[in-house]
């Protein structure tokens, strides 16, 4: 089934171009990017048991890294002059890793504070810190403030023309597949075992001899880097970044994707991203007030379909 899904995703651009629905290629690029950020959230949520309501912050930071680097590169105005002059860049080989690095750094800081708490406190604190970064980005007048920042073009990568929607789509698909494989290795490694043990019973893990706080912090940071990568891609896809990327409702949306698809699985969040974003598109055709339907739909999913779609399809428990 997974193979069929992958074949369908690979065949999507030529099929859509043949049908004249080129819009769907860019819609699916967006879906793949959200799938990436949802998988990264599932690493802490489904595997680590950390209910973060601030994951969009790292998504937004990744976007802003790309946006700000491109801005300085275009304006030829140095981002900083010490210890060396750095005038920004539009080279994807630099921007994507930098986006991951900066997001990971912020995740480390935010995790350092929030992981001192658990449960309800943790939810509220991750939400609050994400909102803090949201307001911070609003206050960045030099980079458009509330209105955001437009890119003049997508980043460059050797051998790939990212300006072409089909190529960009394949880049997103390739990155998602690699990310899924890396995550698969991660959750089955010793580290992954520890993280799942913490989800089950943190106190027991400490009694076994694990410094659980540090493992959780490392996991939180890794997830932040993944979200940053997705953010860097979305900035390129839309050629635009704005504070809206890290608004807390976006964190909620990503959380919904994970739960809808099936948390604690790697393909569940991908499925969740596809279904939620397509559902939004379809509902929006019928009414501009589609959220009035989506809201109760979420309530029903939570109350009655806890295993998520992936669980329903495969019969696996979360």
């Amino acid at each position: 089934m997974l193979g069929m899904g992958l074949v369908a995703l690979v065949a999507l651009p030529p099929a859509m171009n043949a049908l004249g629905e080129t819009y769907l290629v860019s819609l699916f690029s967006r879906i793949l990017i959200y799938a990436l950020v949802a998988v990264s959230l599932d690493l802490i949520l489904g595997y680590g048991g950390m209910v973060s309501l601030g994951h969009a912050a790292f998504f937004g930071i990744g976007g802003y890294v790309v946006g700000i680097l491109a801005f300085h590169s275009y304006e030829a105005e140095p981002l900083f002059t010490w210890p060396f002059i750095f005038e920004g860049t539009e080279n994807g080989l630099l921007t994507l890793p930098l986006a991951m690095l900066v997001s990971a750094f912020f995740a480390l800081i935010i995790g350092f504070f929030s992981l001192r708490t658990t449960g309800m406190h943790f939810i509220m604190i991750t939400l609050a810190f994400a909102q803090m970064l949201y307001y911070f980005s609003v206050s960045l007048e030099a980079y458009g403030g509330d209105d955001g920042l437009s890119l003049y073009a997508r980043n460059q990568l050797p051998g790939i023309n990212l300006g072409d929607d089909d190529s960009f789509y394949y880049l997103c698909l390739g990155i998602l597949v690699i990310y899924l494989y890396v995550s698969h290795r991660l959750v089955n490694s010793r580290f992954g075992r520890v993280i799942q043990g913490v989800r089950e019973n943190e106190r027991r893990m400490q009694a076994l001899g694990f410094a659980t706080y540090r493992y959780k912090l490392v996991c939180f940071t890794i997830a932040g880097a993944g979200a940053g990568l997705a953010g860097a891609l979305i900035a390129n896809q839309t050629e635009f970044v704005s504070p809206g990327l890290m608004h807390w409702t976006r964190s909620g949306e990503i959380l919904v994707m994970v739960l809808l698809g099936g948390m604690g699985t790697l393909f569940g969040p991908v499925l969740g991203a596809i279904v939620l974003l397509l559902l939004e598109e379809v509902l929006a055709i019928y009414t501009e007030h589609w959220m009035v339907l989506l809201g109760p739909f979420l309530v029903v999913v939570v109350l009655f379909a806890k295993r998520g779609l992936y669980g329903l399809l495969t019969g696996r428990k979360p």
Binding site: F191, V194, L208, G209
Partner: peptide
């Protein structure tokens, strides 16, 4: 695993 030193091993399969 708890007594085998740190568990920051991210790649090799534990099983």
């Amino acid at each position: 695993q708890a007594h085998m030193g740190h568990s920051y091993r991210f790649w090799a399969r534990a099983d």
